[in-house]
Design a protein around this nucleic acid. Structure first.
Lengths: 254, 254
DNA sequence: GGGTCCGGTTGATCCAGATCAGGGCGGGTC
DNA sequence: GACCCGCCCTGATCTGGATCAACCGGACCC
């Protein structure tokens, strides 16, 4: 699954409110990162506790409402963002408006890494989210000072690349049923099961976004889900939660 | 697309420029890499001439006929290969035999980088090729000894990721005509024009492989090429060479 | 020479999924 | 309450590209 590092850009059209000024004493900033829920993930996981001041002084958390753009495709890539909570969609847009979602980012994922000067895609929250901003120059300095960060970045980028190649296989070869089954299985591997132990997946994003990720229309997605439900593979609990009744059926279909 | 690795290095530490070759005592091994046509590309471009013995003693060139597998999806990833000449196709296979080509590798590209223990794809020559083998442990040692190699690897992986996301956009959104036009344009940007200055592309791989890369059947590819030829966008010179008559028409279609 | 094989091309037909259209429902607002 | 609006679902129809089928021409072999 893609969920992970993304690339995108620039200034949000509707910038989120700027948080109150941060305390700048070492203790305060160290404490902020030390208590971060994404502390062990993303780039930060490559640093030891002693390095936290380096992080806290160069990064800044942002609380965002849903449907808020974080970076815009093509704009100057001057910062990267680590997702602390929530979910974002990453997408590319063709000149005529067609959009392809390349991935969804959740806690620990890093978005905004760019090859050139511009973000490669747009990132936008699909639920209320918290992200942590770090300027590109700060990231560069951090990498120079802590080589482990570069290693972590390489590892994350490699995982992203592998996920992207899986998505290429999905889009190039698979049928609608296979795509949806693969998607549900990949998601279920990343989420905790229900209280009774059966696996389930949480789908906070609108169906049209899932379709845009899988290369399908929302109508088709709806029909496929109905078919999978009829086959006993899944049960739709609510609009945004699906229980996996029989992973084997999904495996066979994927 | 996967094609050769470009230059720009995301956030990576910039590799040093390549100085002129310098004489060494171990002339035999130094000489082999010093005269390598891919010397300035791929991972090797991150090293200075003085480091060449490190390379020569751990890497070994291999001459391969066409249709020769180099790495197999799922097998233990114990080595990486730098392409010195020729062309390879990289593909993933579904259990029922459907194949999706994720990219073509040419001189300077590195294949066989793996996230886990197994190769993520199969790589097979499409023309007679020369590749240079380096064991994974040797690569790890090289990275430890020369941090610039890790930076180069990150840069190359980032470019690969960006290309993969472009391919996701292509497969998820574009029509057959748009796919072929995008493909021809991307190729033409990487190849030298004909003697008379008009751009052209070289397609040594069979049409079925181009189709497997673009998510199209060979019949469809043939029809699209005919249509583009009819529109005055291209001319088919030989079976494996196409002249771009009007890049603007392709741009409009892509 | 004649044969086979294989890649490519062209034509006819089919079908998975897109598109078009309508309706239901839950949440928000006044 | 009534109204609106977004999202989702379902049915009917359409279509781009797949599939099926035939043919062609060059490479290779005997």
């Amino acid at each position: 699954m893609t969920f992970s590092v993304a690339t995108i850009a620039a200034e949000a059209v509707a910038p989120p409110p700027i948080p109150a000024p941060q305390p700048r004493t070492a203790e305060a900033v160290t404490g902020r990162c030390a208590g971060c829920s994404a502390r062990s993930k993303g780039l930060c996981g490559a640093l030891t506790a002693g390095d936290l001041p380096d992080l806290s002084t160069t990064s800044r958390p942002l609380d965002l409402l849903s449907a808020t753009p974080v970076v815009m495709e093509g704009e100057e890539a001057d910062a990267v963002f680590t997702v602390m909570s929530g979910m974002l969609k990453l997408y590319k847009t063709l000149p005529d408006g067609r959009q392809q979602i390349t991935g969804f980012a959740t806690a620990g994922d890093v978005i905004g890494l760019a090859v050139g000067t511009g973000y490669a895609y747009t990132a936008e929250t699909v639920t209320a989210s918290t992200v942590c901003r770090m300027s590109r120059t700060a990231l560069r300095r951090l990498m120079e000072r802590h080589p482990a960060v570069q290693g972590r970045l390489l590892a994350m980028t490699s995982v992203e690349l592998s996920a992207a190649q899986d998505q290429i296989l999905l889009l190039g070869c698979k049928t609608a049923v296979e795509r949806v089954s693969s998607f549900l299985l990949a998601l279920s591997r990343r989420s905790r099961p229900l209280a009774d132990g059966t696996p389930s997946v949480f789908l906070p994003m609108p169906k049209v976004d899932i379709g845009a990720y899988l290369g399908l229309r929302p109508e088709t997605l709806s029909r496929v889900l109905r078919k999978l439900e009829g086959a006993g593979a899944i049960t739709r609990l609510t609009n945004d939660r699906i229980r996996i009744e029989d992973p084997a059926v999904l495996e066979a279909a994927a």
